[in-house]
Design a protein around this nucleic acid. Structure first.
Lengths: 202, 202
DNA sequence: CGCAATTTTGCGCACCGCGCATCTTCTGTA
DNA sequence: TACAGAAGATGCGCGGTGCGCAAAATTGCG
């Protein structure tokens, strides 16, 4: 590569990159081990070994293995936020949400890990609970985006959080149903269809 | 009381009654201790002592303190199911759900423990997750009731579970919002208003 | 009363979450 | 480049948890 480093005014340094790498490594390791040998047979020690860090380090990133597994869904949730922000402001909110959630499940970048997480959540309610806990954090972020769009207050008004949470819940239930059904048709279509049947008025 | 025991053909015997008593005692003890000294300062050992049983017995009923706290909401959830079953069959589903959930929060039998659980769930996301896990079980039951009403299949169709879960979620978010706001107006009214803004078509 | 079924309890073990001290690695500056 | 301070990784240890197992206590029934 050329001698001159590119100008990256706020580019994350090595430290930050390593941190992110370790985090995703731990999360994916947890997911892989769970898929291989079953959730009950996965110990924190195993996850740490799989990711090449000490067991103590695991707890610097996650405070439970449940948290570790579900954290790998952050990318998808982040993409929902981006897609929503990219929708035209005059578009009705629920339509925009429908597009955003469907886009996050669209084909080209579809992540098979999402199916694994859904399968695990279906069979282990503790993981399902952790998934919802994770979604609640994402919904809070999405709520601020919704509040900005609709001119409401994410703190004082019920609407933004309600719309965000119901959208997440609809998407999750639809996806679970899609997984249960075998997943032959595109998941995004199923989500679009389900979202159209749900309405949340301001 | 009269010497002759009443005829209770399927009435729960002493054994079953004691079991239920122990279960609710443990659950309420957990809730009381959490309200008194804060969730972090409650150990399983304390809950067991408060309920007058051995620590080992606690785990015969609940596999975590989180589960114990939220289990005391079972009565309310059961009441929702009963109220829904009591609604006229020709009533639109979502209206029936609205009435059922509002009735479960109606004044005369309003249980202050519900507010305590909501407060705890607001400040401790682990408890919120457990609350959702609990609601998921209740939603599955409610879904069969909905399936019967709407002539759908609780297993194969998405609709019953979706409607049940969205109703529970709407009710929970509204109640949390109500608690956050101080809770001066009747909670049932807030739930009714929120439910009217949400629609789930079959 | 006495037996069978069920529940409670004590004990023990593997695992977990995390505070603390220490060591290693990275980053900004001269 | 050299270096000092910052930040992350690691080892250690402790209190707490979840649960299997077997003995003891309690309840139901004839």
């Amino acid at each position: 590569m050329s001698t001159a480093a590119r100008r990256e005014p706020a580019g994350p340094g090595l430290r930050e990159r390593k941190k992110r790498a370790t985090r995703t490594a731990l999360s994916l390791a947890a997911l892989r081990l769970a898929a291989e040998r079953g959730w009950a047979a996965v110990r924190v020690e195993d996850i740490a070994a799989e990711a090449g860090v000490s067991p103590r380090t695991f707890n610097n990133y996650f405070s439970s293995k449940e948290e570790a597994v579900m954290a790998s869904g952050a990318d998808r949730a982040e993409r929902v936020r981006e897609e929503l922000a990219a929708r035209p402001p005059e578009e009705p909110l629920w339509d925009a949400l429908t597009h955003a959630f469907a886009a996050a499940l669209a084909e080209p970048s579809f992540d098979p890990a999402t199916v694994l997480r859904a399968r695990l959540a279906l069979t282990h309610s503790q993981l399902a609970a952790e998934q919802v806990r994770f979604e609640a954090r994402m919904a809070a972020i999405l709520a601020t985006e919704i509040a900005r769009r609709t001119g409401t207050d994410a703190e004082r008004d019920l609407y933004p959080r309600l719309a965000a949470t119901l959208a997440f819940t609809t998407c999750r239930l639809t996806f679970e149903h899609w997984v249960r059904g075998g997943g032959d048709t595109p998941a995004a279509d199923a989500v679009r269809r389900a979202m159209r049947r749900v309405r949340v008025d301001p």
